[in-house]
């Protein structure tokens, strides 16, 4: 479907008036995802921003207009596996069973269940909106919080410069589970976003994992109207590269020919205001290392081709 048609011809299956913060990338992404997946979808939204914003709402009056429940923080992939298995058993293969989970429910508490479901090849679509922390409860640190972030559990102080570890690389971990389809998604690149969700919708041979970069104006401290430009900058600095993985192959879906310095992104986010030049250089090194690793994985596609 042409991009303009996607938004012209599909229904917004999220009620107006969710109580998400202004500029929330997660709400925007949820609306786009449901437009593409359509009404034949069952949604699990574990505790986190989107559940807190009311997406698990009362029967079409608020929330979403598809069947929806709130799994526990740590069992989303397992609960949805059970739902999907029963639909497969009934021969209703077209009912899509979809998680829309934050990074805490994905990379921290829910990681074991997700890892198990991926290993078993459960045919669910698991979407993580990564806003890099427990944002609806005041930005506590998660394992996908960027190094140096000033969070409420890694506050900056005389002895602290924020979180001391780099973020956990969830999409790469899921690719190494040999999930059926893995992709990184940015709300700033809508065509790429839409085509990846369209692809995910028809996967039948295992688990789909989509990792959405989800800038959070409230927690990261930037103006709400900058959400999309922040998301775009994250891609253009190679901080959040766009790629996909299927059939054992990694593929870059958006090439960044002249990456911008990471400092351009860091300087626009309040959570990083305390960082020194040396600390920013350290983060640039990490991004360079990750970029090199991914470049080799993209190249491995040709090297390993039969």
């Amino acid at each position: 479907m042409k991009l303009s048609d996607v938004f012209w011809e599909t229904e917004d299956l999220v009620s107006p008036g969710l109580s998400a913060c202004p500029g929330c990338a997660a709400e925007l992404s949820l609306r786009t995802v449901l437009r593409i997946l359509g009404p034949d979808t069952i949604l699990g939204i574990p505790p986190g921003c989107m559940a807190g914003a009311g997406a698990v709402g009362w029967n079409r009056l608020s929330g979403v207009k598809v069947p929806v429940t709130i799994p526990l923080l740590d069992n989303t992939a397992s609960l949805l596996s059970g739902i999907r298995r029963y639909y497969l058993r009934q021969g209703r293969k077209n009912v899509k069973v979809v998680a829309f989970a934050g990074d805490g429910a994905t990379a921290d508490a829910g990681f074991q269940a997700l890892s198990g479901a991926a290993e078993r090849g459960e045919n669910i679509i698991y979407i993580c909106y990564d806003n890099e922390g427990y944002m609806n409860t005041g930005f506590q640190r998660s394992s996908t919080t960027s190094k140096g972030s000033n969070t409420s559990t890694t506050p900056v102080g005389q002895l602290s410069q924020g979180k001391t570890q780099h973020k956990k690389d969830m999409p790469l971990l899921m690719a190494l589970h040999d999930a059926a389809y893995v992709a990184t998604i940015s709300p700033a690149y809508t065509q790429d976003f839409v085509s990846k969700v369209e692809k995910a919708a028809v996967v039948r041979n295992g688990l789909v994992y989509l990792h959405v970069f989800s800038p959070c104006p409230t927690g990261w401290h930037f103006p709400p109207e900058d959400t999309i430009s922040i998301a775009r900058l994250a891609v253009q600095t190679n901080f959040f590269p766009l790629w996909e993985y299927e059939n054992g192959r990694f593929r870059q879906t958006l090439a960044v020919s002249q990456p911008k310095p990471l400092a351009e992104l860091i300087r626009r986010l309040g959570k990083f205001h305390h960082l020194t030049e040396a600390e920013i250089a350290d983060m640039q090194d990490w991004v360079n290392h990750k970029t090199e690793l991914l470049t080799r994985l993209f190249a491995a596609r040709e090297d390993l081709a039969p």
């Binding site: 069952i42 429940t69 799994p71 526990l72 740590d74 069992n75 397992s78 609960l79 949805l80 596996s81 059970g82 739902i83 999907r84 298995r85 029963y86 639909y87 074991q112 269940a113 890892s115 198990g116 290993e119 078993r120």
Partner: peptide, 18 residues
């Protein structure tokens, strides 16, 4: 064949919800 009892109960819970 789940990876824990937590997931065992979660899988049957999802199935029962369906």
């Amino acid at each position: 064949e789940v990876e824990s009892e937590h997931s065992a109960m979660s899988v049957v819970q999802g199935a029962a919800l369906a």
